[in-house]
Design a protein around this nucleic acid. Structure first.
Lengths: 238, 238
DNA sequence: CCCGTTGCTTGATCCAAGTCAAAAAGCCGA
DNA sequence: TCGGCTTTTTGACTTGGATCAAGCAACGGG
């Protein structure tokens, strides 16, 4: 693994405070691999063998039932995913696939649990991380259960703008079909919702989003830390 | 606090393995109070001051947005709730109200964080608990996003039957309007869904549920550990 | 440069679920 | 036991969003 990669990972709040030797040992047992787009990294139901970290690219976390499928989050660099299954040594609840060519670090679950047992700082970090993940999903549920699809889309635009550093023009971070699935609607419906929002000053041309009337959008979305926040990436580095 | 209560709490997986002295100390700083029905214990957005444990009664965890409201879970004895907010010292994401007269133990968040910092076994237990909570909410999202309301209701009946010890007749654990909200539908719709399920061998008379054709119901619900599981109580004692 | 693939949009239609209104059934407390 | 609650059910209607079926546009390989 390259030093630059190691530094990036070390900078994650999950690993920042742990003993340096423990960190080095954990990384010695880890694999860093490149994958092409559309590769299934994880299948739900399988035993959780590895903690994953995206260092480049993007990974979709999704779940299926009967013949339906929904995306629960998109992990973007640099962040970890499926920590909970891993730490509990339980089956994955989600599947994961690369959306674009990606590089993934995989840390064996047994190493992780060992480090967690003997490094108090690491244990603390894991707790904070898990609590953060939990709160993210709770926000996602609130988003889904309380807002209409148009409102969810508006909220998404607002929080993406915040994430892009208050810019009013930015690119969608991934395909619209993924966004639709994340927001709990069909691609057709997303398309229609986009057109509805045109009246509210949102122009979408291809992947480029331009917000002309942020105030209007915020009124629709009524964003706030209790429902929006970091609910997007499975868990991110603050 | 009565010894019986203390024992029940100690028996929770969260506290079971922690040092006995630490546990005693944690409990010394705790309050045990009785509340009538329909009392708001927690308001979302407020700072998380206390970890709560229901020892008797039932507590609804819900969230509001604009003029809408949805219930996210119902905590039944004996279980804790809002651990994540508490451990992160962050604002509550949910509100909580008693559904019936209830007894609640409240542990100051600062005591909790202190115990967590110096008791490794407790820290481990917290991690497992949080991971469990996280997985519960993930299942709830999958339930909402992947199943129709009829399927969700069927799934609910099946998993309640399991919880009641494979009994085919049992009582609903709370009012139908709460159930409706939990399942993400209106009371009217729940009523209709109940009537639909009559054709599939489910008889509901008042609060009494009787399942005549479990196989049929399981076909509709297609239950499994990846989507159903303990998603109901905020977090339970295994 | 063309052509196939893939992703996105559009329109027509359908259906699940929400809304509104009102009746029915429980559930107390006086 | 009788009103006066709340909860639940019902019916009629509306609507948000899904589905189905074409078009269209962009991209990449031959």
């Amino acid at each position: 693994m390259r030093d630059a990669d190691l530094e990036e990972i070390r900078a994650l709040s999950l690993f920042r405070d742990m003993d340096l030797d423990h960190f080095a040992e954990l990384m010695r047992g880890a694999y860093h691999q490149s994958f092409p787009a559309q590769v299934t990294l994880i299948e739900e139901g399988r035993a959780a063998d590895f903690l994953h970290i995206v260092t480049e690219g993007a990974v979709e976390l999704f779940a299926g039932w009967k013949d339906r499928e929904t995306t629960l989050a998109v992990a973007r660099p640099v962040s970890t995913f499926i920590l909970a299954a891993c730490i509990n040594d339980a089956p994955y609840l989600m599947s994961a696939r690369t959306l674009v060519p990606s590089r993934i670090v995989m840390i064996p679950g047994s190493d992780l649990r060992m480090a967690f047992a003997r490094d108090a700082a690491f244990a603390q970090a894991i707790v904070r991380e898990l609590a953060g993940c939990y709160r993210s999903v709770v926000r996602h549920v609130k988003n889904i259960k309380l807002r209409t699809s148009k409102e969810r889309l508006a909220a998404f635009f607002v929080s993406e703008a915040e994430k892009a550093g208050q810019k009013l023009t930015y690119d969608l971070p991934f395909e619209k079909r993924v966004l639709a699935s994340y927001l709990g609607m069909t691609p057709e419906n997303l398309s229609r919702a986009l057109r509805q929002l045109k009246d509210d000053g949102v122009v979408v041309d291809g992947t480029r989003v331009t917000i002309n009337d942020m105030k209007r959008l915020q009124e629709i979305a009524l964003t706030g830390p209790l429902i929006d926040g970091s609910s997007f990436s499975a868990n991110s580095a603050p």
